[in-house]
Design a binder for these strands. Structure first.
Lengths: 185, 185
DNA sequence: GGTCACATAGTATGAAACATAACGTCCGTA
DNA sequence: TACGGACGTTATGTTTCATACTATGTGACC
């Protein structure tokens, strides 16, 4: 039995939401949905379905005639695996990977100016992403069938807002260096 | 010239903060610092310093006599590489990887009960982590020399709080299903 | 003084993830 | 018909990750 990773479940899940799809379909679907909060390289959307098909979780239909392309769809077993996964309340902790945060951790080794411009750049970046997310919410918010797919976006927005506030705050603190120092406050 | 990855800079940075250290020292240091927000397996703390040493960014001192152990320290070149990295205002976007969020994205395929218990479990998890982080902040907050190292923790706390609120909110919404539906709100 | 548990210290291995480049095919248009 | 560009797919090498294994020193207790 193959090991199912998170990648596997993304593929299974997308096939569950969309019905039978080719790798290319999945690639595009990822591009404007999960891709926003769980990025992965398109090459995996070709190799992973093959793995899953070998494991009996997907069916493959090869269209011969014209361009070679394979359509994947969930087997009963695949659907079951997906549902079992969904039914387990996740305990894997959320992970935040942020290179800027790392640089901040090492800030003792950098100059104050470096850290200040880091903070300012982060403010810009987070503002921009927040705008993007919020406009996505507006654009798709009216499409009723997509409503539940937009809920995770709320979380993304909340995270962006939290990060934005943090960096704004930090920049502000650094701009008036006559303040009391220390991390707690 | 070797490619320097984020992992490389974590090693360089830790050596910068701590001074000459063995892989094992680094491993422990990671355990109670960066490891909280940038986890990686200890095996890399053995292989990565070797790579960096070969590239001339680290010096190696082998203690012969007793247990074999190697102490690594920054070379001038290593310190320079680190400082150059720190001086670049990061544009790499923050990444949040949260399997629970993924499950939520696929929630159309799951039952309401599944999602509700997912949300409740998330609330528990985030509450717990928030408590851990806050107690860390208290414990180390008084140690003046560590103050700047605690700043990233604030960000971690802010993120945890945002996530906690989101899941609490979601759970609350689901517990009274007579509410108006939709993602925006 | 032996042996047990435990912290210390390092290595090995294989799978999965990631980035990127290269490859091929179809279609419109000039 | 030849070219550019969008459409699809594969290949490749590296990095990361997880896990298990090996081995050494230390103190405690019998």
């Amino acid at each position: 039995m193959v090991r199912l990773t998170t990648t596997s479940y993304v593929v299974l899940g997308l096939l569950g939401l969309r019905g039978p799809s080719t790798s290319y379909d999945l690639k595009r679907a990822v591009g404007h949905s999960v891709g926003y909060f769980w990025p992965f390289p398109h090459a995996q959307l070709y190799s992973e379905p093959r793995r899953l098909a070998e494991a009996g979780l997907l069916d493959v239909t090869t269209e011969n005639g014209g361009r070679r392309r394979q359509t994947f769809s969930l087997t009963e077993e695949g659907r079951r695996a997906l549902q079992e996964w969904l039914a387990v309340p996740e305990t894997e902790p959320m992970q935040v990977r942020d290179v800027a945060e790392l640089k901040l951790f090492f800030s003792e080794l950098a100059s104050d100016e470096d850290i200040l411009s880091l903070a300012r750049e982060q403010v810009r970046q987070h503002q921009e992403r927040l705008t993007t997310y919020e406009s996505m919410q507006e654009r798709f918010g009216s499409v009723d069938s997509l409503a539940s797919r937009l809920i995770p976006l709320e979380l993304g927005i909340a995270m962006e807002r939290a990060a934005l506030e943090f960096w704004q705050n930090l920049a502000a603190r650094m701009e008036q260096p006559d303040q009391p120092r220390g991390a707690a406050e």
